[in-house]
Write a protein that binds this DNA or RNA. Structure first.
Length: 544
DNA sequence: TCGGAAAGCGCC
DNA sequence: AAAGGGCGCTTTCCGA
């Protein structure tokens, strides 16, 4: 059964639709009664259908209501609009409309006074949109892959809202302690003592008394005036120099970064009541990966992870999908030799053991090159060997690269399609310079599409992993979400669960079982192991 | 004075 | 040691 929610000027209209698609009943509910109404109906385990999870779900969570399933119409629409598999559907061939617009700015999810001043505009008809999507999926003829993708995308939206709701446990005291230890005590609008001392050492080493090390042009000039041949101030270039300034400069960069990106200001802005609550943006990256909006959640430096501390009596169970992208490539390309290497817990070691390459290092750089399109250095050198050892997998990514270079669209395993390449062709009137530029653009776009199919499929696997885990975690406890084991953090191929210590072992097992289930769901019988490393810890930084 | 671009660096 | 793909954030610079 489906329950479609729609905001109107007279209240929330809920339309019940049977699994066969028949409309049954329509109910009008006052905004304030919605959580209780949803909680009551949730007992029948409906699939909730709404335009944006980020709009409907946070108020429900705030009222203590958790739902099992949903359809996020806007996220699903975006997939169907672009997917090759649904290209001939009514949805994809229709003019662009409100469903193609980005989600409206989140209506201050934390605020209780939602629509005090003016009534919300009526939502576009979600029932009609749901039918359009159902028809597009049914006609895709792809063995159900798009349908699975839409379900995975939607459950991801639920997880994103739930993770923001529960937050990542964060020790302000520990964070402040580590900042003070590394930087010195906080100085409002100024450099803490240790950072200023480093700045002073830079000025001395470069004989530049007025140097502001935060200014790149200033710093570059000072380096050059000191006789150093550098073209930028970047760390990889500085590291190569032989000069007394190198050590303090690299340290300055590291500490300055800590201060500006994750210092006291960040702490005040993003951590409250012992929780870091970033905004996760499912589908925020073209490949299908999540993005984040504010707080830099997906770039949380290892430096500050010691401040991530569970509640008393609770633990973190941290799981990392090892070598996810190579495993995904083995499975989606159907490369048996690569799959065999992927049965090892350490896939790179597996490549050595099956005789494909000589060292683990070679395996790693070789795969990086295959997936990212590297042509130089170690990964370039490894390419012929990788091609010999895993011809099917390499042909798969090469085909994706060639398609991109031509301007063709490529798709992930479940059918998310890349944007079309633009400006990749030229005619005979083009000058040599124009031709060369176009070729460079085409090569770059080929690297993008090569990576797209792998990165995007890995993102699909991760969504399935999360969805499977979410269901298992919910069954492990009772009461509201915050009292059961729950997902608290996610970074592309890594999950962090916050759990009562007594359930930590059970959670660890669930993380492994969910990974295996995600592999089966996507790739069926392909004998690729999706190995996960799991650690039960009392600080995030203690996980590997 | 404001805002976008670029540099640089953190994460996967 | 970096390279190749994808991001977000902060600072400074520079032009409108």
């Amino acid at each position: 059964m489906l329950l479609v929610l729609r905001a109107t000027a007279r209240g929330v209209v809920a339309t019940e639709i049977s699994d066969e698609g028949e409309e049954r009943a329509e109910t009008v509910i006052a905004e304030s009664d919605l959580p209780a109404w949803v909680a009551e109906r949730e007992r029948a385990r409906p699939r909730w259908v709404w335009n944006d999870t980020a709009r409907w779900y946070p108020p429900l969570l705030a009222a203590g209501v958790r739902v099992e399933r949903c359809v996020d119409l806007r996220l699903c629409h975006a997939i169907l609009r672009n997917a090759i598999a649904s290209a001939s559907s009514a949805l994809a061939t229709a003019e662009r409309d409100g469903w193609d617009a980005p989600a409206p700015v989140r209506a201050a999810a934390a605020s209780d006074a939602l629509f005090d001043l003016e009534p919300p505009p009526d939502d576009d008809d979600p029932v009609a949109e749901w039918r359009r999507q159902r028809d597009a999926v049914a006609a895709a003829g792809d063995g159900g892959r798009l349908g699975l993708l839409l379900a995975a995308e939607s459950v991801g939206a639920l997880v994103a809202a739930e993770m923001r709701h529960v937050g990542l446990p964060w020790s302000v005291a520990e964070h402040d302690r580590l900042l003070t230890e590394h930087l010195g005590p906080r100085i409002p609008n100024g450099r803490p003592a240790k950072l200023e001392a480093l700045a002073e050492r830079l000025r001395e080493a470069l004989d530049a008394p007025a140097l502001n090390p935060d200014s790149q042009p200033d710093l570059l000039r000072a380096l050059q005036n000191a006789g150093l041949r550098v073209e930028s101030t970047s760390k990889w270039e500085v590291r190569e120099l032989d000069h007394p300034v190198v050590e303090p400069l690299l340290e300055y960069k590291t500490l300055s970064r800590l201060l500006t990106a994750n210092g006291w200001h960040w702490l005040e802005e993003w951590v409250s009541e012992g929780r870091f609550r970033p905004v996760y943006v499912p589908g925020g990256v073209v490949t299908g990966r999540w993005a984040s909006d504010g707080g830099g959640a997906l770039q949380l430096p290892k430096q500050v992870r010691s401040a991530v501390v569970p509640d008393p009596g609770w633990r973190f169970v941290v799981a990392d999908a090892s070598q996810l992208e190579p495993r995904v490539l083995a499975a989606m390309s159907g490369d048996r030799a690569m799959a065999r290497a992927g049965q090892a817990t350490d896939m790179y070691q597996g490549m050595v053991d099956t005789g494909a390459v000589e060292t683990r290092q070679q395996a790693k750089y070789g795969m990086l090159g295959a997936i990212y399109g590297g042509t130089t250095g170690e990964s370039g050198r490894m390419k012929p060997r990788i091609e010999r050892a895993f011809p099917v997998a390499m042909a798969y990514v090469e085909a994706a690269a060639r398609a991109g270079e031509r301007g063709d669209v490529v798709s992930t395993w479940l059918g998310r399609s890349s944007p079309p390449g633009e400006g990749l062709g030229y005619d005979e009137t083009a000058t040599d310079v124009q031709k060369r530029r176009t070729q460079q653009r085409a090569a770059a776009w080929g690297r993008f599409t090569r990576n797209f199919v792998v990165q995007g499929t890995a993102a699909e696997w991760a969504l399935c992993w999360m969805g499977s885990l979410r269901r298992r975690l919910w069954q492990m406890g009772s009461g509201p979400l915050t009292q059961r084991p729950h997902l608290a953090f996610f970074v592309h191929d890594e999950l962090l669960v916050h759990t009562p210590a007594t359930l930590a072992d059970e959670v660890a097992a669930a993380l492994r079982e969910s990974a295996a289930e995600a592999g089966r769901l996507l790739f069926g019988g392909m004998p690729v192991e999706f190995a996960v490393s799991v650690a039960i810890v009392e600080r995030y930084s203690d996980a590997k």
